[in-house]
Design a protein around this nucleic acid. Structure first.
Lengths: 406, 406
DNA sequence: ACCTTAACTCAAAACATTTGAATAAAATAT
DNA sequence: ATATTTTATTCAAATGTTTTGAGTTAAGGT
């Protein structure tokens, strides 16, 4: 991911092959298939697919899973995506915490580690990352590591938009960081914001699996949005698309640190429920033990929590209606740093607007559902960035070295 | 544009060449350049670019514009995009009207025609289109016609979401129509909804020229949104992305035909200002002569119109803030079927939210601006669909013939 | 048994790009 | 003035990948 002006790159034979590899891998990610079927789907000759599959097989990225009896003719040799063919590292950096996961190509976690951060200086954190990576790679059951994903909280290049100043990471420039990290880790590094990465994780192995177009609402400390359209994450001009937390949902509503009143994340976020419960005396001002308290209050149908749920569900319903009308997703997924039971309770209380393009008779995916990646979603998403880049066909961009001067 | 499940297609040498042609043409669309510069920008060899340029020159799509004195060395032969190299047809179908334009490759209109529609039956309208096309092609100053764009009002595949039932076109299936139209016109046909096409027109030759990522608010009878992200229109899972008119901007606000209350287009749309002026007695119930009345009232600063402007600007400000936070565009452009002066008055009254990712110090384009394509925007956009498809590199999709059976 | 259908393989051909050497034209240095 | 450097361009051969067409394998249908 980059925020510099880019130029679409030209193709040549080698790039063509790399593209075709991604096409084939992307197809197999969804379903096992014979080579003839793949060739037909991709518009390639069977010979080409044969050659590619032979290569992918020796690399261990695909497996023959036997023959399948077809209606007539020679039964195809069925190939399947091999999740154990390679691994990816994912790092999530928060102001107080560094989380690392190692996943296979299916997005399944093989190892994970948390590391408290005393400082957020990039040099310091990068050194910690290198240390964790080395250890993880040494112990990894899968030898081949494709790369590392790095996830930091957005928005990028702005000040004063986060709900909480403690969520900002000063000095973390997404334009220059990957190069520095690549040098230290000796691996290709991809960077993105938490919600976008989390969305990819959910699309790779979670609730949005197989959907090309969906929205993912990510509960961090605020509320983030990751949008995937036709299989590609939507990042906007400066990487800040999906800043849904500061959409005004209640005109003249609660004041927000950003200067607006009535921002969505004042009603629907972890911070919002914490504040409500602190005010009602259910939680200490340091908000320790939030999750246990939340689950207890939910279990007993505590009126104070129900009050928050009702307010949040009302705001969220309208917000989801808005997202549906703007992005026309196949499904909207909710996940992140909130207990599953609370997300379920929120979903159960939604009253989605009737005037939405999502109200169509031919839907296959639920309008709203809870994600399945749990609390590590963002770190898993970091790894998913790597997998996505090796499996999903894309238009390559070419960074402009110098401005094209007249 | 298609709404069927698609599969990304594989590449081969021919597709590689087609891609490289688009890369080169897309580069030249922005600025004239020598072959070495193009080669460097696209990551191609100079030889390849030389070959492509020779071809494009004989096809008349590019022109040598002489040599440019460089700092040192042999001065490059400068090539420029030739707008007169080919033409495109654009059709806008509305329930009562068929509009056609013929444009050159720069998006400049060469001819235009209106045709009242007595019926909206696709067969009937397609026949009218064929007739108009034939006439336009016969009179065209540019012989080569690349194709035709067809624009119909969205949303697709839904009922009961339009503000006005009169805007719907029954029987117009965007999935099957292009094929039928291609047969009749003998040209490649592209279809899309009005706001998306209008956005492309504005990006090709209007206010958003050169911007890869922008939002376009389109005043039709309701309010539509066309989003262009990294040069590509965002269409969503079913082609209905950008249905901004039915985003709820005032909780418990004015009732809307869609079932919601407080939809944006109840406050910001041509229909909304018409209703307001009819209610105030400035306009006949048949809303004839709307534009003249609007301009007169605006000129005299009529309090009733100012009242509408204030209400609309308040709603629109929040809506634009929302779009900025969700799409992170470089600019938001307003255009369509509203007099320029009224759009300007609306923009002058905006009070954009402070909590927006668009508040950055390094912006180059204005946060909000009026479009420059005028009232034909949608029909011009239809033609822009054709130009876009020949000039913009893309990932080719391959329609799945039969479902991949297990 | 024989035919049909479908998947697959092999070797040759086709396509477009890249490479490396050579040429052209200008600014700068001697 | 002349040589040198720099940049743009062209030519011909080499390279990488895909496609094509013929032939093989393996199953079901008749």
């Amino acid at each position: 991911m980059s925020f510099q002006p880019q130029q679409i790159a030209g193709n040549n034979a080698e790039k063509t092959k790399a593209h075709n590899r991604r096409v084939v891998l992307g197809y197999l990610q969804t379903r096992a298939a014979g080579r003839a079927e793949i060739a037909k789907a991709a518009g390639l000759s069977t010979q080409t697919v044969s050659n590619l599959m032979a290569e992918l097989e020796t690399e261990g990225l695909v497996l023959r899973t036997g023959r399948r009896a077809a209606a007539r003719g020679q039964p195809p040799v069925v190939y399947a995506f091999n999740p154990a063919g390679a691994a990816a590292l994912g790092f999530e950096v928060r102001p107080d915490m560094l989380t690392m996961v190692l996943t296979d190509l299916g997005g399944t976690a093989l190892a994970s580690e948390h590391h408290r951060l005393a400082q957020t200086d990039p040099d310091f954190v990068l050194a910690q990352m290198a240390r964790l990576a080395q250890k993880a790679i040494a112990r990894s059951p899968i030898a081949r590591i494709l790369g590392a994903g790095l996830v930091i909280p957005g928005p990028f290049g702005l000040e004063g938009l986060s709900t909480d100043d403690a969520t900002a990471l000063p000095g973390w420039d997404p334009a220059t960081l990957p190069a520095r990290a690549e040098l230290l880790l000796g691996l290709p590094v991809h960077i993105d914001k938490d919600a976008t990465a989390a969305a990819l994780a959910e699309g790779m192995s979670g609730a949005a699996q197989g959907l090309p177009t969906y929205a993912f609402l990510y509960f961090g400390s605020g509320l983030g949005l990751g949008i995937v359209a036709q299989g590609h994450p939507l990042r906007g001009a400066f990487g800040n698309a999906g800043e849904v937390g500061h959409v005004i949902i209640h005109p003249n509503g609660r004041a927000c640190g950003c200067g607006n009143a009535g921002c969505l994340e004042q009603y629907v976020s972890r911070l919002s429920v914490q504040r409500h419960l602190v005010a009602k005396g259910h939680l200490a001002p340091d908000t320790s033990g939030t999750d246990a308290t939340l689950l207890r209050l939910l279990d007993t149908q505590n009126p104070d929590l129900i009050e928050w749920l009702d307010t949040a569900a009302e705001a969220l319903s309208r917000a989801i209606g808005m997202l549906e009308n703007l992005f026309d997703p196949q499904s909207t997924v909710l996940g992140g740093a909130l207990p599953d039971a609370l997300i379920d309770a929120l979903i159960a209380r939604l009253a989605l607007p009737t005037g939405s393009v999502a109200r169509r008779s031919d839907r296959t995916a639920p309008r709203v559902q809870r994600g399945t990646s749990g609390r590590f979603t963002a770190a898993l998403g970091a790894a998913a960035l790597v997998i996505h880049s090796t499996v999903t066909p894309r238009l390559d961009a070419h960074r402009l070295e110098s401005p094209p001067c007249p």
